[in-house]
Amino acid sequence: MKSRKKYNEPVTVILLAGAAVFIFLPLYMTLVVAVKDTSQMQHILSFPKSIHLENFVNAWEMTDYPRKFFNTAFITIVNVIATLLTNSFAAYAISRNRRKSKFFSVLYYYFISALFIPFHVIMLPLVVQANTFHLDNIVGITFLYVIFGMPMNTFIYCGAIRQIPEALDEAAMIDGASPLQVFWYVIFPVLKPTTATVAILSVMWTWNDFTMPLILLSDQDQQTLQLSQYVFQGQFSTNYNLAFASYTLVLIPILVIYLFAQKKIMNGVVAGAVK
């Protein structure tokens, strides 16, 4: 048998080459095209002779980047806070009372079975209903995200809460704590890793979602970063430099977050799926 210290060199080379061609090359191309001007597009991958940062300025102004960034950040941040506060307590209530009361047991299966309903199945009636309730803005869509996250988050949270011994709740109850106090001071702190998972999945979902904004946010001032790329696709037309500058601006925030939180994100995604 091979000794443990010895590196597997052929596999290392294959993986590095694969990463270079399939991951870094598209990213390099995105950045290079974003800083070139049209006269340098003869050879797409050639290193830029001159850097045209005005592409970023133009894309920034054309798509109204600050406005779209604010909208996307608003949806993402408000959703994640509201989701963590409401969904976690709901899951706690369900998980702890499932055996005591039919009501909670039925709700558990109600939420879980909704996992099988793909979004496109309810899409058409939802558009009509969202108009009736005036949900066609960033506040409305955030509200819908919080609610639509329930099935997945109930599933993840209940899996984690089941592992926490009920003696912990009972001890706190005897000390006179109300259910909300027990949850907030005893259970919620213990659930921290699960909360991280739910937070990561929620952020990824809302930041990158394209379908819900597409059907709900028709007003330019309410649109998200992802949606605005789709909307401006026609106006970019063959000005690829402008288009890629715009894509780069949208990718940068998420790449920065990934750079700093890579381990946490990967662990969170695994925990969410394996539960």
């Binding site: 706690y92 939420f111 009509v128």
Partner: peptide
């Protein structure tokens, strides 16, 4: 308190997820 905590979410979920589904 447990009923209220879950009940609100269940009613909202029913209204904005299950109702569109049934309407569909």
């Amino acid at each position: 308190v447990y009923y209220i905590g879950v009940g609100i979410m269940a009613i909202l979920f029913f209204t904005f997820h299950t109702v569109p589904f049934l309407k569909g």
